[in-house]
Design a protein around this nucleic acid. Sequence first.
RNA 1: GGCCCGGUCGUCUAACGGCUAGGACGCAGGAUUUUCAUUCCUGUAAUCGGGGUUCGAUUCCCCGUCGGGCUGCCA
Length: 510
Amino acid sequence: MRVRFAPSPTGPLHMGGVRTALYNYLLARKNNGSFILRIEDTDQKRFVPGAVEYIREALEWAGIVPDEGYGYGGEYGPYRQSERKEIYDRYIRRLLDEGKAYYAFDTPEELDRIRKEYESRGETFMYNATVRQKMRNSLSLPAEETQRLLAGGAPYTIRFRIPENRKIKVKDLVRGDVEVDASVLDDKVLVKSDGLPTYHLANIVDDHLMGITHVIRGEEWLPSLPLHILLYEAFGWTPPAFAHLPLILKPTGKGKLSKRDGDAGGFPVFPLEWKDPRTGQVSPGYREQGYLPEAFVNMLALLGWNPGTEQEIFSMDELVEAFDLSRINKSGARFDPEKAKWFQHQHFQRLSDEEIWKKIIPVTETHLGRPLTEEEKNYTRQILPLVRERLTFPEDFWKWAGYFYQRPEAYHPKAVKKQWKNQTPQILEEVKDVLATITPWEAGIIKEQLSEWIQNNGLGFGKVLQPLRLALAGDLKGPDLFAMMELLGKEETLERIRLALERLPSAKEQ
RNA sequence: GGCCCGGUCGUCUAACGGCUAGGACGCAGGAUUUUCAUUCCUGUAAUCGGGGUUCGAUUCCCCGUCGGGCUGCCA
C-alpha cells in the first residue's frame, strides 16, 4: 500500500488538511505501507513563500511523518510538481497524439465573456462536446491553421477530450458506487498556457508513476473523480482506490471551516502559528496555544471517524491499530472547539509530573520575565502536585499558581467585597500571631493548630480561611490552603497577611 | 441554475431490518472541598417531512425539504 498527501503550498495547512494527512498516514502504517508527501505547486501565481516549510513542520509536529517525498527522499522523485514538467510534457504528448486531448486557443477573456453571456441567459457554460466545435481549437480549426498558430507562438491550453456517450462507474470506499454520465463533464484544461499542468493531469500522472494504491482526499474532489477515472482510462492505467473524506464544517453557521472562523470563534484553525509574508498578519496555531500534538491528532481523528467502540482517547499507535476506512463517516462534521479542549485536558493529564514540569518552567519564566534559579525550579516541582489536575494547558499553571512566585499586587474586588468583613482584620491579626508560633511549618501541623484555634474561638472555617486565602493569593481560588502556606514558607505567609491588613480596609474605614 | 454527496440529542457519534435509540462534549443539578478547579453521581436532549416495502424501518426504495461540495488556464 502506498498513499500520499499532496498539499498545495498556497498558505498554511489547515486542520482539514492535517486530518487528510493523518488518515493517509494511519492507513499506511496500519498496512505497513508508505506515506508519501508530494508538493503540488503547479500554480505559481498562488505560491506562498514559506508554505512548503510550514507544511513539513506542521506534519512533523503532529507526528505525521512521511516515509518518502519532498524533503524525505525516495525512489519516485522529484516530489515537487514544479520539478516534473518534462514528465508531464511527455504524457500530454501521448494524449495529443492519440487524439484524446487537443489544443485550445480561446483566450481567458473570450471564455470569460462567453461564461457571462450564458449566465445572463440563466445557463451554465460548459466547454463540452456540443460547444467545442464552435470554439477556437485544434478540433474546430483546419489543421494548417492550428499548425500556423502553434508555429507562431500563439498562447494555447491543452484540453482533455471527454469521450461521448459514456457512463462512468466510480467506486468510492466511503460512499459506495456512483454512476455518472460523461455528458455532464466538460473538456477540462490539462495544460495551462504557461506550459504547466493543472491539478488533474499532474495528479493522475504522479499518482500512477509513484505507485499510489489508495487516494484519500477531501470531498471537494468527488465531483472530479469521473474525470480522473477517464484520464486513467485514456492512459490505459488502472486507477487506484479512492476514498473521499467528509469536510470539516464551521462550529456555527453555514459552510466549511475557514480561516475566518478561528478569528471569530477564538480558536486556531492552523496547527502552527502562521505569519502571512505579505500582510504580516498572524494566525494562531494549536502548538502555540499549548495543545499537545497527540491531543490535536486525537481530536482530528475522531472528527469524521469512529472506532466503533466507546474509546475516545487514543495515542497515535492506538489510532494506527484501530483505524479503518470503513468507519469513516459520510456527512460533514462540525468542529467543536470545546471538545478540542477536552481532548487536550485528557492528554495533558496523562503526562508525567516530569513532563508537565518541563512545560511549565518556561511559562513561569515568561511571566516572571527572567529565568528561574535552580532552587525555584525545585520549588516549582513542589507546587505542581497541588495544581496539576486542574491544568489543561501549560499556560494554566501561571493562572493557578502564579501567586507562589509573586505577592499579590491587588485583591480580587468581588472576593474582597464578599469575604473581607468588619471583623476580618481583627481575626487575621490573631491568626497571624497563631501562625507565628507554629512549628514545624508543615501543612498537617498548620492545619491541626489553626483548626484548633478556630474551634476554640467559635469562629467557623469560612470566616477565617477565606480571608486568609485572599490575603495570600489575592483571590478566592486555589489549592489546599495549608499546603499553600507550607510552600510559601512561614515568613512569606506572615508577610502577606501583614500586607493585606495594610492594604485592605480596616474596620474603622468600613 | 445544473451536477454530485449527505441528514440520529445544540455538537461529535453508536445501534446484522427487531431491547427503553447507547456513549462523549456542552449545559443544569447534586456530592466532595475552607474556596475555585478537578473528580464522582444524576438529569437534559435526537432518528428532517411524506409516502412505500415489511409482521416489524433510524436502517431498504421513492418524492420533498434542508445542509454540504463542485460548476476556473485554483488546488
